[in-house]
């Protein structure tokens, strides 16, 4: 089996400062990988380098493309990379305002990806949008409302629907549950877990919330000061942390 994403010795520097360095891992089809670490540990930088928002200074990001097989994403032409970003990839932002068009109706938001890959039949686009709103538990009669009239949880669910409508194979999620209250968080996690499972999606989830990775991720990578300090199966890392920093992180979780 070929890994869907293979990262080798990735490095990104901001001048003399290290964003992230020496990151290597393989992500296998259907696998969810969590990246945890404190603020400033390089999680978001790493995610940016993987998803094409940032240009790494060193290393390779090899994606198993549907037609061409494994390709270094950083060497792809820009049209190809942008095409990838709206078909095979999904990117869920922490703040739904970054991932949604706030002035466009919910249906239009979900339909945009379809139209950008050539859908030109209004009835079909609308039908697919309705179906996806259903899957993320947004009522049908909200399809023509704009996301700015939605609650935070609904906006996040809409963002997920908008991203998954083209049936991507790899999803990048940056703190998908950040800023939501615990009950909404729980429902969203349930939803994401269901969708990932149903669609056989591979995902990389960046978060500082250990409970989120415990629920979502099969495998875990702990970052500190731009470096990966520990990686392994989620339960293994969380229950039996080896690195001193991971031990600190795990013991810092507040108990209710």
């Amino acid at each position: 089996m070929t890994p869907i994403l293979s990262v080798q010795d990735l490095e990104k520097r901001y001048g003399a400062r290290i964003g992230c360095t020496g990151v290597s891992f393989d992500l296998w089809p259907g696998e969810v990988m969590g990246i945890v670490g404190e603020s400033g540990s390089g999680k978001s930088t790493l995610l940016g380098c993987l998803a094409g928002g940032l240009t790494p200074d060193k290393g390779q990001v090899i994606f198993d493309m549907a037609d061409l097989g494994p390709q270094d994403v950083l060497k792809l032409s820009e049209p190809r990379r942008r095409m990838l970003a709206r078909t095979d990839w999904a990117f869920v932002h922490q703040n739904p305002r970054d991932g949604l068009r706030m002035g466009v109706s919910a249906g239009g938001n979900v339909g945009e990806r379809l139209m950008s890959v050539g859908a030109r039949h209004y009835g079909n686009i609308r039908e697919t949008a309705t179906d996806w709103l259903d899957r993320v538990e947004i009522a049908h009669d909200r399809i023509d409302d704009r996301p700015r009239d939605f609650s935070g949880g609904m906006q996040q669910r809409l963002q997920i629907a908008r991203n998954l409508v083209t049936g991507p194979r790899l999803a990048f999620m940056d703190e998908p549950t950040g800023g939501l209250d615990v009950s909404v968080q729980a429902r969203l996690l349930d939803l994401i877990r269901g969708l990932v499972h149903d669609m056989g999606l591979s995902a990389i989830v960046v978060t500082h919330d250990l409970a989120v990775v415990r629920l979502l991720a099969d495998r875990l990578m702990v970052m500190r000061q731009g470096r990966v300090v520990e990686q392994g199966l989620t339960d293994q890392v969380l229950d039996d942390p080896q690195d001193a920093y991971t031990q600190l992180l795990v013991s810092s979780v507040l108990q209710v």
Binding site: P79, G108, G111, R113, M115, S116
Partner: peptide, 18 residues
């Protein structure tokens, strides 16, 4: 430059939806 014109149809979609 890349002929990415899906967004233009989003505007027309919004028209029909509204």
């Amino acid at each position: 430059a890349l002929a990415e014109y899906g967004l233009m149809h989003v505007k027309l979609y919004e028209d029909i939806a509204r």
